[in-house]
Amino acid sequence: MAAGGDHGSPDSYRSPLASRYASPEMCFVFSDRYKFRTWRQLWLWLAEAEQTLGLPITDEQIQEMKSNLENIDFKMAAEEEKRLRHDVMAHVHTFGHCCPKAAGIIHLGATSCYVGDNTDLIILRNALDLLLPKLARVISRLADFAKERASLPTLGFTHFQPAQLTTVGKRCCLWIQDLCMDLQNLKRVRDDLRFRGVKGTTGTQASFLQLFEGDDHKVEQLDKMVTEKAGFKRAFIITGQTYTRKVDIEVLSVLASLGASVHKICTDIRLLANLKEMEEPFEKQQIGSSAMPYKRNPMRSERCCSLARHLMTLVMDPLQTASVQWFERTLDDSANRRICLAEAFLTADTILNTLQNISEGLVVYPKVIERRIRQELPFMATENIIMAMVKAGGSRQDCHEKIRVLSQQAASVVKQEGGDNDLIERIQVDAYFSPIHSQLDHLLDPSSFTGRASQQVQRFLEEEVYPLLKPYESVMKVKAELCL
């Protein structure tokens, strides 16, 4: 049975990233139509530049190519590739079939990587351009969430054990800070992308030097003109047959890092959902379990974690691919890159769409948070109580021993009897502590235990987050809708 299948058929496997999760716009960027249309555009740009620099290419040939950029006979191309065992030459023939007058000058002087690699770089750039505003929107939604809850005390956790208090907004800023680093890295790697350009079979530009009869300047002009037509500021000066596969490492490393950030955020949300302090959106008709109707599973956060793990592992592909590119190139890269580049971007696209949807509907339960604080705060307040007693004339050592005994009794009630923490009640009825009984409410005010959390939130948002989001103001209103 021949390899390949009808990918629109229910009898043929289709990647869930495309069929179930990723956005239509990201799927289109990695589609065959987008790819092969870009090949034709690159052939047109090459012909236009070659004509401008004096090669015998007519206006009629150029116009014929322009008129057929979208006229792609995919069936013919597939048949040609089956016959020739070469995808680029299959599309040269297919393009030439609908451009008979231009057929002889299509791909003039070029090698397969002229269309293959340059198209990949265009796709990487455009895919990054799709991700950047999506990530900015996630940051914006979380920034709104953090600002609104900047002063809401909550129990902090280290080692997932109760620690000092923080605020809900401050905790959210930990998430935002990681995503801001990801946004900066995505922008950097996007701006650092260079075009492969017009380089020939081993990167020496020998074929173009021959076409222009040894004119170095025209060869350099050709490279520059096509690079500018493709919208790049610069091209690699040095290439082998391909652009260095280190570029793929750079791009997928940034995406993998984004995956790590999203995994951490969504894990926190899942843990908070278990504590009943916070939940992701839950639709009115949504079913959490087929057997347990009360369940409210954090399905979206779980999906993000599941896909983020996949995204983090994909960076190993370009690392290994770059390491086995012998001399000017081997074909070890080809099949692998067809999979890992598309999957990385479709996965990143999915987790950003999902995280935006989550961040637009996060639900906080202040009463649950308050109750958990009441359970733990008495123990945390013991040092403040000791200091207040010393100020009232008591002995630190005597007070410490009193607190120690009462704390152990209260802990026994919590752990052995399943009761509430009654340390404060014990202190309130103990005559030894009568000098500070009137101060206990103040000493137990949760806001006095959150330090500068709310001020940190305000400063972080104003100095770091809002300036970073400013270039994306025009796209901030787009909502994230999930079908599944």
Rank of each mutant, 00 (worst) to 15 (best):
L406F: 14
K101Y: 07
L258I: 07
L69A: 08
A2I: 11
R329E: 00
Q286P: 02
E279C: 08
S454P: 12
C27E: 11
G288C: 06
Q221M: 15
L346P: 05
L440V: 12
V138I: 13
G203V: 01
E302M: 05
A273M: 14
L69V: 09
F145V: 07
L355A: 07
A230F: 04
R20D: 00
G5S: 13
K218V: 07
A381E: 08
E302T: 04
K470P: 06
H217M: 10
N118H: 06
L55C: 10
L174G: 14
A411H: 02
F157K: 07
R20V: 00
H159D: 00
S67W: 10
R396S: 03
E80W: 06
A49S: 12
Q455D: 06
M312S: 03
V413L: 08
P281M: 12
A388C: 08
D216T: 11
E283T: 15
T167P: 00
L443W: 02
R83V: 09
A18D: 12
T313M: 11
L132W: 14
W326N: 05
D248F: 00
L444Y: 05
Q164G: 02
D420G: 04
G5P: 06
T94P: 01
H7V: 11
F345K: 02
E383W: 03
L135A: 08
S289I: 01
A150E: 09
Q205Y: 00
K367A: 14
M225F: 11
L484M: 15
L461A: 02
A388Y: 05
M389F: 07
L152I: 14
K82C: 12
D73N: 10
L482V: 12
V414H: 02
R338A: 03
S67C: 12
A3K: 14
K276Q: 05
L341N: 12
C113F: 00
G419I: 06
L482A: 13
K82V: 15
T94N: 11
F236I: 08
E283R: 06
E228H: 10
L461P: 05
A163I: 01
L469W: 05
E383F: 02
P293N: 01
M476K: 15
L461E: 01
V368K: 05
C305I: 03
R190F: 13
T267N: 09
G451F: 02
C180P: 01
T321A: 01
L42V: 15
S31D: 09
E343H: 10
M312W: 05
L211G: 04
Q63S: 09
D223L: 04
P298Q: 05
A102P: 05
D73M: 05
Q397W: 01
P467N: 11
G288R: 00
V429F: 13
N274G: 04
S19R: 14
E360Y: 06
L468F: 07
L193V: 11
T166Q: 09
I238H: 06
R85E: 00
T111H: 00
S395W: 05
K470I: 07
T58Q: 10
V324H: 08
R309L: 04
T450M: 05
A335Y: 04
D398M: 12
K147C: 08
S438F: 08
K35M: 11
Q325F: 09
L179C: 07
N274H: 15
L482H: 10
H107A: 04
R20T: 00
G214E: 10
T350F: 05
A90P: 04
D144C: 14
A235Q: 13
Q320G: 14
L275V: 10
K246W: 04
R137A: 15
S434E: 14
L311C: 01
T119M: 07
I237R: 09
C113P: 04
L319Q: 03
T202F: 00
P153F: 05
R296A: 07
S301E: 06
Y34L: 06
C98N: 11
E401Q: 13
F30I: 07
I237L: 11
Y34C: 09
K276A: 05
P162T: 05
P10Q: 15
L124G: 06
F145K: 05
H400K: 02
T382R: 02
I122R: 01
F236T: 07
R83C: 11
R396G: 03
L252A: 14
E25K: 12
N297F: 00
R296Y: 06
I427D: 01
N297S: 01
L255R: 02
A308V: 04
